[in-house]
């Protein structure tokens, strides 16, 4: 019955190791959602390598049965895959979800062409199986995963994951400001709630946890328009409109130090307080596990 969420990579764009990012972490996107019997993986950024190391410490005798979902195939969401230890074991089954065109499967294999990496995709020992969403819904073990479109150059997917009456939404690489009816509103009336489209609000509705791209601050965003990422205050407004319980800000900018992320979290919390919302906000941090099936 357990519903656990672990952050393995929370950095956006490029791995950023070093003392400035030690606390929140420098690995790119990778999140593990786990029940007592199923392991889902969202994105295959460099955090995936460490997840693989962890999975191989105590592998089940019958082998690992893993489910991989990719928000989109930009580097920081697939770069860890060639270094994912379980993919090299014949006892592993890895189901890779995508559309019926299997484009995610093909892109994962494409990045392992000989020009980029010494081991070919076909030489991986694991049983790697593509599986398509049907009408944007799929069952993976004892989870139900719903996919929704996001605003990002080249497109990206958000995922609503449900298990045991609880819901977690993973929504990274989404430029929310480009979805606003009035994109000048944050400048003209910065304190007014930024209204987002109903289909997006419904996809996030009443989530126990929203893990969302919040790469920029309000001050940084004007020079990053069109880059495909959200500013933290607009994410807060989405969470408020959707009645979310907890909001994890993720996809931290590679230029942001741990102190910068702290400041971004404080600013986001101020915004939630301004509109009187009961919303817990924190910065996603590598190595932290939350449990969603408990109050």
């Amino acid at each position: 019955m357990g519903f656990f969420v672990r952050f393995w990579g929370v950095r956006g764009s490029i791995p950023t190791p070093g003392p400035r990012t030690r606390r929140y972490g420098g690995n790119t996107s990778c999140i593990e959602l786990r029940s007592d019997s199923t392991v889902l993986i969202f994105d295959a950024g460099t955090g995936l390598r460490e997840l693989g190391v962890s999975l191989l410490r105590n592998p089940p005798r019958e082998g690992l049965d893993l489910h991989l979902f990719l928000s989109h195939p930009h580097w920081d969401h697939i770069q860890g895959f060639p270094f994912f230890g379980p993919a090299y074991l014949p006892t592993t089954t890895l189901t890779v979800y995508g559309s019926e065109k299997n484009e995610n499967y093909q892109l994962l294999s494409g990045q392992m062409s000989n020009a980029y990496f010494p081991v070919a995709f076909k030489d991986l020992s694991a049983r790697i199986v593509p599986k398509a969403f049907k009408k944007d819904v799929v069952e993976a073990g004892d989870f139900v995963v719903r996919r929704f479109e996001q605003k990002h150059p080249g497109g990206s997917s958000g995922f609503r994951v449900e298990h045991g009456g609880r819901a977690c939404v993973y929504a990274t690489d989404s430029e929310l400001d480009q979805l606003l009816a009035d994109q000048q509103q944050p400048v003209k009336s910065p304190r007014m709630l930024r209204r987002l489209p109903a289909p997006l609000v419904n996809a996030v509705k009443d989530a126990d946890l929203l893990i969302a791209d919040a790469q920029y601050t309000d001050e940084e965003y004007p020079t990053k328009v069109g880059w495909g990422h959200a500013r933290a205050n607009t994410v807060v407004d989405l969470a408020i409109q959707a009645g979310v319980r907890q909001l994890a800000l993720t996809h931290h900018d590679p230029m942001h130090s741990d102190r910068d992320v702290d400041a971004k979290v404080l600013t986001a919390a101020d915004r939630a307080r301004t509109v009187g919302a009961e919303l817990e906000i924190f910065g996603a941090r590598e190595g932290v596990t939350l449990r969603l099936d408990r109050d």
Partner: peptide, 15 residues
């Protein structure tokens, strides 16, 4: 509670 956030588990960092 890790720095005020309830967690199930966490790798600990300085401070």
């Amino acid at each position: 509670f890790l720095n005020g956030l309830q967690v199930h588990a966490a790798v600990l960092r300085d401070g």
